[in-house]
Design a protein around this nucleic acid. Structure first.
Lengths: 73, 73
DNA sequence: CGTGTAAGGAATTCTGACACG
DNA sequence: CGTGTAAGGAATTCTGACACG
């Protein structure tokens, strides 16, 4: 499940989040999608799970900086 | 591995085949990718394996019609 | 039969910015 | 801080067709 194979659209479907949210988590150094030669992001199933957890934590009141420090998620 | 999550580009990478070949196998009823509302194809890891097998069989001299009859691959 | 390619269009994604609170 | 949105461009994919052998 580590293979980075899905594009933004699929991740949006699987997580229920918006592209904006997903990209923001990356900007905050919480996820690290791969890039195709053309610049497109590629995510793994693990990334999807991580994104869900991140969003959940944010709902619980945490901030992205804290989540980054926590490391695991 | 049944989830249809990857687009053509990823499948091309994982199989080493061209989009033309992959679409042809679909036209021959050997694989059945999902379609996004916008008409884009989505494949699963199982599809990728199946595509590899199909190509191998073709190399072995089989024809798509025969492969379809065989069913399993 | 299985695959290559040029052609034109449509869907998808990307970045940087302005906005809100 | 986390997210929405309009803007313009670039990458990706789609289909139908002509070609070859």
């Amino acid at each position: 499940m580590e293979k980075k194979v899905m594009s933004m659209g699929t991740v949006r479907e699987l997580t229920g989040l918006t592209a904006r949210q997903i990209r923001y988590y990356e900007q905050r150094q919480l996820i690290f999608p791969l890039r195709t030669p053309g610049g497109m992001r590629r995510y793994s199933f693990s990334d999807v799970e991580r994104i869900k957890t991140i969003h959940q934590k944010l709902q619980d009141g945490f901030q992205t900086v804290e989540l980054r420090k926590m490391g695991q998620l």
